[in-house]
Lab assay of single mutants.
Amino acid sequence: MADQLTEEQIAEFKEAFSLFDKDGDGTITTKELGTVMRSLGQNPTEAELQDMINEVDADGNGTIDFPEFLTMMARKMKDTDSEEEIREAFRVFDKDGNGYISAAELRHVMTNLGEKLTDEEVDEMIREADIDGDGQVNYEEFVQMMTAK
């Protein structure tokens, strides 16, 4: 299944994987998964984290390695993001709930994920998604960005 991913997608997933893999040992533990999910405003229980890991832990060693992570991402993409997942993601970014993602809100979430971005990089990300040019990202623009192939 992971063989249907483009090189660009694999590179993006590698970057995402390293955000989860806090200690850089090449595997994601339940603790690391929990840290990232909490930084995104989720509050999973230990059991939920274990279930999430077990779902993709092909070799049964209790952690997720990069090939397992790729399989999980490929699977998720095949079920292409349901509207509800996209709306949920939008809410994570839209901290003040005004229906727009500002540069400050984007920077806040990315920083929580451990991504240190310059102001230019954040502005560039907003510009790429900002179709109507108002300097922020509304829900429609967010959907376009998330579903762009």
Rank of each mutant, 00 (worst) to 15 (best):
D65L: 06
G133V: 09
R38L: 06
A129M: 08
A74P: 08
F66V: 12
D96I: 02
D25G: 11
T111K: 05
N54K: 08
G26F: 08
M110E: 02
V36N: 00
V36E: 11
N61Y: 08
E128Y: 02
E7Q: 11
E55A: 08
Q144E: 15
S39E: 04
A58T: 13
D130T: 02
A103T: 12
L33T: 13
K95H: 14
S18N: 15
A104V: 10
E128I: 11
D21V: 13
T27L: 03
E7R: 09
D81C: 10
M72R: 08
T30N: 04
E140T: 06
S39Q: 15
D81K: 03
K14T: 08
K22P: 00
F20S: 10
D94C: 10
T27D: 06
E15T: 03
L113G: 00
R127I: 10
A129S: 12
V122Q: 00
D25H: 07
L117D: 02
I126K: 00
V109H: 12
F69K: 04
F69M: 00
D119R: 10
V137Y: 04
I131T: 13
K14W: 08
D123T: 02
D65G: 12
R75W: 07
G34D: 02
R127A: 01
G62W: 07
F69C: 02
M145A: 12
D3I: 00
E105F: 05
A129C: 02
A2E: 14
V56P: 02
G41V: 09
F13Y: 13
T71S: 06
F142I: 02
D21H: 07
M73K: 14
P67K: 04
E55H: 13
N112P: 09
Q136W: 01
E84V: 13
D57W: 14
L70S: 13
G24W: 09
D134H: 01
N98G: 11
V109C: 09
T30Y: 05
A103S: 10
G135M: 03
S39A: 10
N112L: 09
G26Y: 05
E32R: 01
D81I: 06
Q9W: 15
E32K: 11
K149M: 07
E84Y: 09
E105A: 14
T111S: 08
D134L: 04
G97S: 10
F66W: 02
K14N: 08
Q42N: 04
Y139P: 06
E120R: 01
D23K: 15
Q42Y: 07
L33I: 09
I101V: 12
V56R: 04
T45L: 11
K76E: 13
R127K: 09
V56W: 05
E115T: 04
A11S: 09
V109T: 10
A16T: 10
L70Q: 02
D81P: 02
M72F: 15
R38M: 13
N98H: 10
Q9N: 00
D57Q: 08
D57K: 08
M125G: 07
P67H: 09
E84K: 09
G24I: 15
D94H: 09
K116N: 11
D123I: 14
G114K: 03
D65H: 03
E15Q: 09
D123L: 00
A47S: 12
R75G: 13
M72S: 00
Q50P: 04
D79L: 09
S39F: 00
D123V: 07
D51L: 02
F20T: 02
K22V: 09
D79S: 05
M73P: 06
Q144C: 06
F20L: 12
A11V: 13
Y139D: 13
T30G: 06
G26W: 10
L70D: 02
D134N: 13
A11C: 08
A47G: 10
M73V: 13
N138I: 13
G24V: 11
K22D: 03
K14C: 01
F69G: 00
Q50T: 05
R91Q: 09
E121D: 12
T71V: 06
D65C: 15
D21C: 15
I10L: 11
H108M: 14
K116Q: 14
I10E: 09
G114N: 14
T118Q: 15
E48H: 04
E12T: 05
I126T: 11
G97E: 13
E48T: 00
T29D: 03
V143I: 11
D21N: 09
I101S: 04
A104P: 13
S39I: 12
T30S: 12
G41R: 12
K149Q: 05
N61F: 03
M110F: 00
F20I: 11
L19W: 14
S102F: 05
G62L: 08
E115S: 05
G62E: 14
L113K: 04
L70I: 13
N98K: 13
K116L: 14
Q136I: 07
T27W: 05
E55N: 08
D123S: 11
E141S: 06
N61S: 13
I53E: 01
D21F: 14
N138R: 02
I53K: 14
T111L: 10
D94A: 06
I126C: 05
S82G: 13
T118V: 11
A103M: 15
K76T: 08
M37I: 12
T30K: 02
I126H: 09
L5V: 09
V137K: 03
A74R: 06
A11W: 07
D123F: 11
T80K: 09
F17E: 05
E84S: 01
T147N: 14
E141R: 07
G135E: 10
A2H: 05
E124R: 11
Q144N: 03
A89D: 00
R38W: 13
E7Y: 05
A74F: 02
E85K: 04
Q4T: 04
N98M: 15
G114A: 05
L49K: 03
D21K: 02
A129I: 00
T111W: 02
K149E: 11
